[in-house]
Structures are given as C-alpha cells and as structure tokens.
Design a binder for these strands. Structure first.
Lengths: 340, 340
DNA sequence: CCGATTTTTGTACACGGTTGCAATTGCATA
DNA sequence: TATGCAATTGCAACCGTGTACAAAAATCGG
C-alpha cells in the first residue's frame, strides 16, 4: 500500500530485445551498429523482436561512450521573423540531411538568455552551436571548447578565436545599394535603419555611407525601433513627411523596406518606383509579393549553410572569418536607369 | 607513431571536478542535484572547481538513470511559413520557460519524413512529440507510448488514442466567415482553398459550405497548389477572371488571402473592401500590414500552447480532443455592414 | 577429414552520472 | 564527557549502450 510504485518510466531496452530474440545483448547492439559483425540469421531475429517490442536504440545512452551526440544547437531570437525563419528552416533541413539533430534554443527576450542557451548546449554535449542572434560572453566560448564543442557565429563579427564567423558581405552590399540608387537618378537619398544596431546592419549602413561620402552625396538617416515592419512604417512616415522628401531609400532590412513602401503608398499616395525607389536586404518571401516587388539583396544562405556544416564536421577546424557576396536581386522598386 | 591518438573528445567530467576540489565524485553530483544533501563548504569547493574547469553536468548521462530527458520534439513542415514560424517561436519559448528543451524536426519534403521524425524522437527519449504537420503512422504511436512518450497533434484530427488533439474550431470559423460576408452584403461568394487538403483547412471549408447551404447561397470554389501566397495569386486571378466575378472571398489561409488581394489589386485594379471583401485565417503578421489590413481569424495560439504544456507535464494524461474558438479579428478587408 | 582462417558470439569493462545504504562526522543535549 | 540524532559523505550498484578482446563456431583449402 504505502509502497511507492516505481516512477521509472517503462522503456524497451536492448536487453529486452535480446531476451525475446534469444541472443545476447551485444548482438542487439551490433545489429544496430553499421558495419558491426552479426550473422544474417541473428540480425533477422533481432530485427523481428525489436519490431515486435517497439525497440529503438537509446541515443542518449549511445552518445555516452561514442562521445558524439549528433546534436547541433541553433541559438536564435525572433525566430518568427521571415528571414530568421527561412534560415532556421534551411539549417534544420540540411542538418538533418547530414545526420544531425537540431536543438532549437529561442533567445528572444532578455539578453542574458544567450548565455543560458550556450550553457544548455554544453549540458547536452551539443557537437556545435550555431548562433544566429545575440553575442555570447567570450569567457563562455572557452567552456564550449573545453567540452569539445564547435562555435559558429552567423552574421556577426566578434573577437572569437576558435569559431567560424560567417555572413554576407554587408559593406559591399551597402555600396552597391548606393550606386544603384544614384544610377536610378535619385536626387535625395535616405537610409532607413532600425534602432537596435546589430553588427550586420551597422555594416550595411557603413558601406552605404562610405560610398555616399566617396560620391559626395548627402544622406538622410532615419533610424528607430527594432528591426520590423512597424519600424519601417514609422521610418517611412517620418521620411515622407520631410520638406526634402527623399526619392531613394536603402533599407537595411526587407521588413523595414516593406514598411517604408506601405507608409509611402498607404499614407502618402506615393508609388514605387515612380515616386520613390526602395532597396531592401534579405530577400524575404514578401519582397517578391506583387504588392512590393522589392529590389533587394539575397543572403547567400545556401553557401553560408554549406560552409557551416562543412566546418562543423571538420575534425579540428581553424578559426575562420568568411564573407560571402550577397546577390543583388533586381525587381521593380527602383526606377529603371535612364539610358544615356 | 602508428599509435592512433585517441579520437575521444576531451570533456570535463564530474571526476575531474572532484579531484580538483578534493571531494568525492558523488559530492559533485549532489552539488548539482537540487535538494540533495551537501554541506555548504563542500558545495562551495565544488562550485569553484567547476567554474575553473568549465564543468557542466552531462545531461545525456544524467538522463539515463533519471529517465527524464527534458527534451520535447517539435515536428513540423514548412517552418518558414509565417503562421508555422510564429507557432514554433511561441512553443519553443514556453517550453524553455517550463524547463524543457526543444528538438526541432523539419519534415518538409517527402511525407515519409514524419515517420522518421518520430523514430528520431523516440531514439532521443523525447518526453513528448508535438506534431504540427503531417500525420504519423498510427502503429508508430504505440512504439511512442511503449517508450513512455507523449503525443500531441495540433490542428489535425485522427484516430489516435492516447494523444492530445488540439486546434481551433475550424468549422465554426468557416460559418462565421460566411455570415460576415453575407452581412457585408456580398452577392457572389467564393471560397479560395489550397489544393493539398490538410484536415484543418478542409474543416474550414466544410463549415463555410455548410453555412452557405443553410443560407441557400451558391459558393464558387477555387482550389490549387499548396498553401502559399503564390497559390493565392493564382486563385485570385482565376476568380477575378470569371464572368460572375465574386465580391466576397473566404480564404482558408492568410497567405492565400494576401495572394488573392494582390491579384485583385495588382492585376485587375480592384480594391478591398470596396470591390472585393476578403477574409483569411491565421492572423499572420502580414495580415496586419497596411497594404492588406486583412480581416481574419486569430488562432488561439496561447491557449493551445498552454494546454499542450499542461497535458505534457501531466503524469498519465488521458486521450483528449480540444477545440478552441478562433478569435475573429476585424480589420478592413470586408465591407462595413449597411446599417438597416 | 583435418588444420588454418575467418566470422560470429560472449565476457568484461567503459561512458558520465545518480542513488540506496551504511559509515562517518557534527552538533546538541543529558 | 558520554550519548543520541541528524546531517554529510563515500562505497557500490545501476541507468542503457558500445567496443576490445578472447572464445567459439563456421568456412575453406587440401
């Protein structure tokens, strides 16, 4: 009565299968280990019993002495944002194809969470942690390494020896954007940026402004809020309200660009590209929607991910910083260049 | 020379900490086990050494004899779709808050992947699997249960004893949509649906059509493609091209609705709600964008997730089917009802 | 049919941690 | 100071699986 029922969850173990099949437990293990030596007869018996009992190798246990968990941590905030969601979709897909398993750690909210995320990844002996947003405490990186974990920072550059830092060439894209606006004949050029300056969008801004200075062009800068459509609306409204209303805007993000376009169209009756040329960045699905038809930069997502996986599966990868060119995607939010 | 260097990854173990702190390995374990009996002095020594060595409890190992992995699997396809991404963001956030860890399994692509996903979840002794898309083989459910795993199906109804099946009341929403269009004075009513009929959107369709029949209204049905903006464009174009061009459309998905609106606006010069009333479903962020301003149904996401977590953390939950009302979100894609 | 190989199987230990139990220590009380 | 009890500690066993090594069985050549 007072005897407590075992709270241990019932699990099917290799020993159960072995007993049922009349073989040793090791044979069960071998049956499920590729390349191990088992006779066809034994394997068949084991597979049959496993099927009947519903046995699956416990990878938590096997990870123990293999010291390869097969788990990769994806650390990201605002994962419901179009670009981020696409990145996670692609990453998880390719990871899976590579035989890895994705642990998703959401760090939206307080900044401290990036630290917790990494600690969690370490606890689960994740083979690698791919950080899409936020910057970890450098001291934590050592703990990662001392536990044999690899570290990838996407779209941010820090002083992180031992890690792979990869992303698009934001600066170059900023330059290209300015040139495109000039070539379109824009007279008053603006930059729409979000208020929370992450490394990548700051770089885009830097590239844009540097090119402007080089060309001797003044740039109207407007920045508020977090990177979002709503911020774009706000920024667009502010820009269109100006006396010297700009006729060409580079938005550091497609979401912002969509907001700017909508502000111009819905609130001021202005149309792209006739009244206003807009360039974005990320090439989110909405950029291709007919209501926006946004000229933008496509993140070299495939190449970033491929490089990521390759680096993560290298035995002892060296510190590396990689910048891949973003592809300029021409649509119709920028006035066609006049033929000279 | 020919001696192979141990390929075993270096990890910091409890034994290392114990040696460094001059205590037994058990004391280390107890230090990190809430409620275990350790003296303050020992705990302090252990914590200090752990800090220095960068030690973290190996949860793969501790899961073994605790038989609680703390991992929950999220099985979903098309996770870069706005609604799905939002769902995953919320779920992963709340799971984390509940002390659980999210394993994301992407099942985009071939259908068979749902099966593989579940098998993977079982392998990792996931405490629960939350299936957002696709339908698993019922026989697999037994294997899940026999390994002490819980099963949640979101937005799909199958004959799955032992699982929680939860989602919005799609049929009721369909009915509400029809009534709203009628009340707006629509004369020719259409239904825009995707070609790949998942349970939830079929239910919405059923509810809509049933209400139409009840009201004695004919409905133009148009369905193609997968659930996407592009399908919406196509459907919208087909609808607007008709002789009896509809003036009210219920789209089973916001993405489709956005496509329909854009087709009408960009390709036919028609405006919502003046020329066309449109109702969607999901309340994705884009529905609130000023270019769409879409009247739609908000998924009761928070309540779904809360129920999910509650059910998953119950010791022995009973089979349950829950339908929660979707909230009708009024915006401006439906003509205002005439005051009688 | 016999001995030499090769293949298959079983034993024992390891992986990193938790936990029941008994031994030890610390502390307060008589 | 001796005693009793509670708090701490350590030993040993266990979680479920993989693997080196040795033993056993199967295969092969002659």
């Amino acid at each position: 009565m007072s005897e407590k029922v075992s709270s241990r969850k019932q699990q099917v173990r290799a020993a159960d299968v072995a007993r049922h099949a009349g073989v040793s437990r090791v044979s069960v293990s071998r049956t499920f280990t590729p390349g191990a030596s088992v006779s066809a007869a034994t394997r068949a018996k084991v597979l049959k019993s496993a099927e009947i009992l519903g046995y699956r190798v416990n990878r938590l246990a096997s990870s123990l002495n293999r010291s390869e968990s097969g788990i990769v941590a994806l650390i990201a905030a605002e994962i419901d944002t179009p670009y981020r969601a696409a990145m996670i979709a692609e990453l998880s897909d390719k990871l899976q194809a590579a035989g890895k398993v994705t642990m998703l750690i959401n760090t939206s909210g307080y900044e401290e969470r990036v630290k917790d995320a990494l600690l969690q990844a370490i606890s689960f002996r994740t083979e690698a942690a791919i950080i899409l947003s936020g910057t970890p405490d450098p001291s934590l990186a050592d703990t990662c390494f001392s536990n044999g974990m690899k570290l990838v920072l996407i779209n941010r550059e820090e002083d992180f020896p031992g890690s792979l830092q990869i992303g698009p060439d934001n600066k170059a894209a900023g330059k290209t954007a300015l040139k495109a606006l000039l070539r379109a004949g824009c007279q008053r050029i603006a930059l729409a940026n979000s208020g929370n300056a992450t490394w990548s969008i700051v770089e885009r801004q830097k590239g844009f402004l540097a090119a402007a200075e080089e060309a001797g062009v003044e740039v109207i800068c407007e920045a508020t809020g977090v990177t979002s459509y709503e911020a774009g609306l706000e920024i667009g409204t502010a820009l269109m309200d100006r006396e010297d209303r700009p006729d060409g805007v580079f938005c550091t993000t497609d979401l912002i660009a969509c907001g700017v376009i909508d502000a111009a169209r819905q609130r001021f009756g202005l149309r792209t590209p006739d009244d206003l040329s807009v360039i974005g960045f990320d090439d989110i699905p909405q950029a291709a929607w007919e209501g926006y038809d946004l000229t933008t930069f496509a993140q070299p997502m495939d190449r970033i991910i491929d490089k990521c996986l390759e680096w993560c599966t290298t035995e002892q990868p060296a510190t590396e910083t990689v910048q891949l060119p973003a592809k300029f995607v021409w649509r119709n939010s920028v006035k066609k260049a006049l033929v000279v």
